[in-house]
């Protein structure tokens, strides 16, 4: 479902003397449907960078990132938009929403974009929020005022409200209590079971053990010239 080959990336910092910083070289990995791949490596080794390149908000210097039929490394913006709409889900660590929009609509948003009728989208969003133990009285409020754990769960709900065939999970269980952690882990297991290809970053080792079929250490993709 997701196949990366020969991928490299560098940053050019124009405002710091045009310094060119290579951050990745010859990255390659592959994830099949129903498989969960864990990215590991020390902090700063490029786990998040790789994930963002797959999501498309970081540009690849060379190589290819096939998600389904689309090569994210070369695709036109509107192809990536279409990919994100129906195929590729992403649970990031940050919640970015229009202020004032009720939580239930924030979660239903990806479904509305896909053309799901409003009532059905809200119903599916509500069911997921209930499952993630977000109190119903908060659903009509904007998540911007929520605690970190609550925001994290709203983000997860957004990522799981549509059954994306490919999922990127950036620390999905960070800042969650034991009960909610368990809910999230079972959601991820459910996604695997229905055949989603998942790439995740889990600092939570027990979660990593339980979910990941394989681990890839991104340190191996670090350019040697960087030193």
């Amino acid at each position: 479902m997701i196949t990366i080959s020969n991928l490299s990336k560098s940053f050019t910092l124009h405002n710091q003397g045009a310094a060119v910083i290579p951050v990745m070289e010859n990255a390659a990995l592959s994830v099949a449907p129903g498989e969960c791949l864990g990215l590991v490596g020390a902090s700063g080794s490029g786990k998040s960078t790789l994930m963002r390149m797959i999501w498309g908000n970081y540009l690849a210097a060379s190589g290819s990132i096939m998600v389904g039929d689309v090569d994210v490394a070369k695709a036109a913006p509107r192809e990536i938009i279409a990919l994100r709409r129906g195929t590729l889900g992403y649970v990031s660590q940050f919640l970015r929403v229009v202020p004032r929009v009720p939580t239930v609509d924030v979660v239903a948003d990806p479904l509305l974009t896909l053309g799901v009728p409003v009532e059905e989208a809200r119903a599916r969003a509500s069911a997921l929020l209930a499952k993630l133990n977000i109190p119903e009285r908060l659903w009509a409020l904007s998540p911007t005022t929520f605690s970190g754990g609550e925001q994290q769960r709203v983000n997860i709900a957004r990522g799981f409200v549509h059954p994306y065939p490919a999922l990127l999970l950036d620390e999905p269980t960070a800042s969650l209590d034991a009960v909610n952690r368990e809910v999230v882990l079972s959601l991820i297991e459910g996604a695997k079971a229905r055949g989603a290809a998942i790439i995740g970053i889990f600092h939570d080792e027990a979660a990593r053990e339980r979910l990941c079929d394989r681990l890839v250490d991104v340190t191996g993709f670090t350019p040697r010239v960087a030193a």
């Binding site: 940053f11 498309g56 908000n57 540009l59 913006p77 990536i80 938009i81």
Partner: peptide, 8 residues
């Protein structure tokens, strides 16, 4: 892409 231009 908007987030690409803003993030990278």
């Amino acid at each position: 892409l908007t987030d690409q231009v803003l993030d990278d």
